[in-house]
Amino acid sequence: MAMKKRISLELRNRSPAEVVELVVDNSRSADGEVEGLTDDFTGLEFLSMVNVGLSSLAKLPPLPKLRKLELSDNNLSGSLETLSEKCPNLTYLNLSGNKIKELSNVEALQNLKSLQSLDLFNCEITSLEDYRESVFELLPQVTYLDGFDQEYNEAPDSEADDEDEDGEDGAGPTGDYDEEDEEEEDDEGSEGGEVGPGFQVSRGEQEDDEDEDDYAEEEEEEEAAGIQGQKRKRDVDDEGEEDDDEEDD
């Protein structure tokens, strides 16, 4: 998808001035230039243009509030002086995976006075001797290079910190609370508390089965009694006939 079209979709019926974060990763730039961005994006603080085929930043509009800029996996080798002109308040810049080969390429970032974190991972410049020391010396305002400071202390993960804060502020009751509730519900059920509809239905079906069994037993007993009564009657009749025969004799 073309970058210009992607940006129009990302607006989602908002005006450009209302947009604070904009991600157009993996879209296609025309002729390696930024397109679709205008100076109307006055409130933009985070912009991500990863793998969009950029080879120049010459058409980047003024973005006075921009703090974080993701430009990894493009074809940039120069024109970085545009950043200090158009985005003077940048604090984080990711240029990893670009065609930056010499220290002179990043020298233009000296005017980004607020820049704290710079990423040049997978750029040819990282193969230079004393690469880290040279970049820190050239850009003294930078605290973290490729995710580490000069003493190789890792940069804090701001996104993870935000998630932790959200968890503390918006978290519900702990797991222990849920377990106690479940135990209480189990105890109530086992001690003869209110039973659910499923149990009541099963109990009713059981009672119906018992009634049917009792009725069947009664029928069997009555049938047996009737057979016995008929047999006794036949026996009595037979005895009476025998007595009559003897009297005739």
Rank of each mutant, 00 (worst) to 15 (best):
L44Q: 01
V19D: 06
A30E: 15
T38C: 01
V34P: 05
A30V: 15
V19P: 01
T38G: 04
D40S: 15
N26P: 08
S15L: 00
R28M: 13
R14L: 12
G32Y: 03
L44T: 00
G53H: 00
E45W: 04
T42V: 05
N13T: 06
N26C: 13
V23L: 11
A30Q: 14
L11K: 05
S15R: 11
R14C: 07
S29F: 04
G36F: 07
T38A: 02
K5W: 07
E35V: 14
E33K: 12
V24R: 08
S29D: 14
L47I: 06
L11A: 00
V52R: 08
L47V: 03
G43S: 14
V23E: 12
A30R: 13
L11N: 01
T42Q: 03
M49L: 15
V24Y: 09
V34A: 07
M49C: 11
E35F: 03
F41H: 08
E18A: 11
V50R: 15
S8Y: 08
E35I: 11
I7H: 00
V19T: 01
D39P: 01
A17N: 09
D31M: 08
A17W: 07
R12Y: 02
V52F: 05
V23A: 09
N51P: 04
L22H: 04
V20K: 12
N26I: 04
E45Y: 09
D40Y: 07
I7M: 03
F41R: 05
I7E: 00
S27K: 04
E35S: 13
E33Y: 07
E18Y: 07
N51A: 10
T38N: 02
S48W: 00
M49S: 13
G43A: 14
E10A: 08
L9W: 00
F41L: 05
E45C: 11
E45Q: 12
R6T: 10
V52H: 05
N51K: 12
G32F: 02
S29K: 11
P16Q: 01
E35P: 06
V23Y: 13
E10S: 08
T38L: 04
G43E: 11
N26L: 12
N13W: 11
L9D: 11
V20D: 09
L11S: 00
N13K: 09
V50D: 10
L9N: 03
S48N: 03
R28G: 11
G36D: 06
K5T: 08
N26Q: 13
F46K: 10
N13M: 00
D40T: 10
M49T: 14
L47F: 02
D39K: 05
G36L: 06
E21W: 15
L37F: 08
G36E: 10
G32W: 03
T38Q: 02
E33Q: 15
V52P: 04
V20E: 11
E18L: 07
V52Y: 03
P16A: 00
G32M: 03
S48G: 09
R12V: 02
F46I: 15
L37A: 06
S8M: 09
L11W: 06
G53L: 07
S27E: 06
V19N: 04
D25W: 14
G43H: 09
E18I: 02
G36K: 10
S27I: 04
E35M: 12
A30N: 13
V19E: 01
S27G: 05
V50I: 12
P16H: 07
F41C: 02
V20F: 10
L11E: 00
R12W: 07
T42I: 01
S27P: 03
D31E: 12
L11Y: 05
R28S: 15
T42S: 03
E21R: 15
E21I: 11
E21D: 14
